[in-house]
Design a protein around this nucleic acid. Structure first.
Length: 261
DNA sequence: GCGACAG
DNA sequence: ATCTTGTCGC
């Protein structure tokens, strides 16, 4: 997959700006206003996993876990062909179509298991143009979504400075946070110490139909390890799927070339 | 030219 | 994203 042309990037930027008009940054559900999330029963997690040398074929994973137990209620692994390359700031154009398909399949086949909120591997509002993958998936699915990134995206003046590192060092117990504030003073997300064991925070931001404080509280409530359980399960299960279906590490693409030789 | 670059 | 075993600690 080649790097997109400037025209394509411009088109992508227009699409992000257009979809952003439909973004809802506040709590819209009753369970979100409850101190203990009463009424929340199902939390979704999504992720894509890849085979070493292949960036076109991937395993798209959707899981639904019970809340607050974090027991697996549903899992779906699906091999997909990606149409867009990875470009920082445009991850949604690579991953959203496959994830939307998985959600539509669930709605079609097991509507009673539809998640009430989805945790997404990547950023939401914490993004160059304040419209990351979690926002994109949220708006197009119209589901509440939360962005959880494992690495800091340096954006709008938020940098890995000594100040940032000292803020991380100041997080002493799980649940502790500090805001990710842009150079213009807007809070785009929060760094969260997700569990006592890990020093490295996760970066939480609003995806759609949830407030930042609720998003952080929910993410913390889903953590048994550093990465919140829905995303962690999606990651582990999709990797397991690739291990058992392509044990040689031979991707579908390589298999076809082998057959044609 | 140099550094940054979610997944 | 992926490349990868042992190792240290609870």
């Amino acid at each position: 997959m080649s790097t997109p042309t400037e025209d394509v990037v411009k088109q992508w930027e227009r699409e992000q700006a257009e979809l952003k008009k439909r973004l809802v940054e506040e709590d819209t559900e009753d369970w979100q206003k409850s101190p203990d999330f009463a009424g929340l029963e199902r939390v979704g997690g999504v992720d894509l996993s890849f085979i070493k040398g292949d960036d076109v074929n991937a395993c798209a994973q959707l899981v639904v876990l019970s809340f607050p137990d974090m027991k697996l209620l549903y899992k779906d692994s699906q091999m997909v062909t990606l149409n867009a390359p990875y470009v920082a700031g445009f991850l949604a154009f690579r991953e959203t179509p496959s994830l939307l398909e998985a959600l539509e399949k669930l709605k079609r086949e097991q509507p009673s298991l539809m998640p009430q909120v989805v945790l997404v591997d990547g950023n939401g509002l914490f993004h160059y143009r304040e419209f990351g993958l979690a926002c994109h998936l949220g708006v197009l699915s119209d589901l509440p979504c939360v962005g959880v990134a494992k690495n800091l995206l340096q954006v709008q003046g938020v940098v890995r400075s000594d100040e940032h590192l000292s803020q991380i060092n100041a997080l002493e117990k799980d649940g502790d946070t500090f805001p990710l504030t842009t150079d213009t003073g807007k809070v785009l997300g929060k760094a969260l110490r997700s569990c006592l064991k890990s020093t490295k925070p996760v970066y939480v931001s609003v995806g759609h139909r949830i407030s930042l404080d609720t998003a952080v509280r929910l993410t913390h409530a889903c953590c048994r390890h550093r990465v919140p359980e829905p995303i962690r399960q999606a990651d582990m299960i999709s990797r397991e799927y690739l291990r058992t279906h392509f044990p040689s590490g031979l991707s579908p693409r390589d298999n076809n070339e082998t057959l044609n030789t």
